[in-house]
Write a protein that binds this DNA or RNA. Structure first.
Lengths: 202, 202, 202, 202
DNA sequence: TATGAATGAGGCTTCATTCAT
DNA sequence: AATGAATGAAGCCTCATTCAT
């Protein structure tokens, strides 16, 4: 029992450190963020980070992995709660495009970092692939559900529409994350929703 | 004359070094790329890079700036050459989605780095904003041209469609650049083209 | 308690490093001394020096500052201990002219470096001014003391004699420090003492 | 003839470069002055300096040597021109103490550098020794001249007085050169002159 | 003769990592 | 469990020097 309790305390600490890492990565970038900065954010010493994680690399990868997992969880939740295809789709869109202003902007930047780093860190690429795949499944399933029930009468095949919506949302993410974009997250959501509506001929 | 010649030689050298930097940034990332790697790529010494550029930072920023400028140039060329709105639009789409396999993949990754770094480097953000703005202008103008001539009968207002197309292409870029995407650049082009066709009701 | 103890250990380390720096500056000069040399002298790594001091510049300035402070301390001690004006004056003279053979010659050279560098490093100049001022105060006070008690019957006004003695000692310092001088420190002390005796008409 | 002429042009160039070096050494110090700075001062390229001198070290040593030789020349001139012992002595004192405000302050600083560097550069030490020796000869000879003619009735032996005067002047030099001194060059001259007058019992 | 492009050695500095406490 | 002193590898950068022109 004591053991279990201690483990859960340890796990809590790890999560706290990972959250600090995500914020710091968003601010300084995956490659140039310093353990010292993260430690400062968490109010601990660098030694403690090393005590909880094997190495800087493993620690930062775990942090980005958490970003992806949180993402997946949020989608899964929407999927379970929302049964109407169109409502579910708009909520999924909102979950992406909305994440930015609501939650800290660092998280959005961290996601961009995630994608940018994936091409040179195999571990990250694998995680990112998994997240992408899960994302596509959820969207595609939603569209298929709507088509099957006759709510959607798609003008293109379901997979193409799925890819289009996903690409649009990724593009908005990029635009907003870089802070050099031309659209706000509200506009992004509006655009994505309108286009989806037309492509699905709701 | 001699002076002019020498200056052009110097400029040529700078461009060569910048190209090497772009490739190296694509491989190693903006923050962790080493001058040594770039020098090796260009077949020169690190001292020479410092001889041509004031600092590592200034050098790398100039490299990413070049990526943006090359981008703009390629669009401008298409805009001048191609008069038919739809052909021009498909070529613009292809210019983005196609760039990846044709030219080195490093360039695509460098672009992703560009966007990811923009949020923490003011200089980069300004350049990226300018590139984005120019990109939007070219696409919007093309769509307006098609609408004016009756070739396009858009289902949404022109600006929304422009934003949608741009977002889609950015999203594809991100997906392909991260190498964790689910679509090839061929598929990306096909999706973007089909969606554009429908939105413009060509 | 633990905190206090740790701080004193840290301070001790700093002093050790500063002493090594003084020796090394005396050997290699303020500008060309290498952190590596100092580290070797202290038997530590260069990283440790940077751990204890912010930068090379700050470290070296602190080292020369210590030279000045040690100087001041030694004078203050003589001033407190010795009540007889003439004995005190001869001891002050000896404290300067004698420092060289007794203690390491590097300290003398370090002092010369101090003066030479002062003209281009503002921080050093300020410290040097303070040391000079204190030095003058102590000598002048001693002379005034002797005059007041009738032990000295000066042939020139007290300030002039003070300046003369100080200049003579500085000159000896320079001569000995440069190792190109024509007088030994014994001779220097003898000359300064004899001249002082005459000027004060003891 | 042509050869001779070219040689003199070459020699003139060298002197120009040496003068620039002296100024630059005064500003930046012997060890940290950069060839680039000296070249800028002289309005030439660094390549040219290397064309005229074998190495940085040899160049800078030659520059300081010139400072010493100029010094010696100025004393010799006074010695030849001035026959009255006391007038000659005061002019010698003035030549030292006055050099500072009259000529550029860099020259004074360069002299301090000279002395400070002598302890670690054998070549410099030899030159400095020679200059010191010559200086002592001139002063001693002047004093002996005055004693022989009965103008001076020294209170201490001639050598001691010589050493005292030289030390005082060196000390003033140091004080003024470091720019952290407590006396102006006018005051320095006054002090040295008064003390000399008393010691020589003129 | 003089230039300036290019080199490369070596310094300062940063920072992840280790380890004694 | 947690700290933080200490290490040492590696990067950027400076600058004297070389050499083709």
């Amino acid at each position: 029992m004591a053991r279990v309790h201690e483990d859960s305390v340890r796990e809590e600490q790890r999560q706290r450190l990972l959250d600090s890492a995500i914020r710091a990565i968003g601010r300084s970038g995956f490659d140039s963020v310093r353990l010292r900065d993260i430690a400062a954010d968490a109010g601990v010493t660098t030694g403690m980070i090393q005590y909880y994680f094997d190495s800087r690399q493993a620690f930062l990868v775990a942090a980005l992995e958490k970003v992806g997992l949180d993402q997946i969880n949020s989608w899964s939740q929407i999927r379970e709660v929302e049964t109407d295809p169109w409502t579910r789709l708009t909520r999924l869109i909102a979950a992406c495009a909305d994440r930015n202003p609501g939650i800290a902007i660092e998280r959005s930047a961290a996601w961009l970092e995630f994608c940018a780093c994936a091409c040179r860190h195999t571990e990250l690429r694998e995680i990112l692939s998994a997240v992408n795949q899960r994302w596509r499944e959820v969207v595609l399933e939603t569209i298929q559900l709507g088509c099957a029930s006759g709510v959607f009468r798609p003008v293109l095949d379901e997979e193409t529409i799925t890819d289009a919506i996903i690409a649009m949302l990724d593009g908005c993410e990029m635009s907003i994350g870089s802070q050099a974009g031309l659209v706000t997250s509200d506009e992004a959501r509006a655009v994505a929703t309108q286009v989806a509506e037309h492509l699905l001929n709701r």
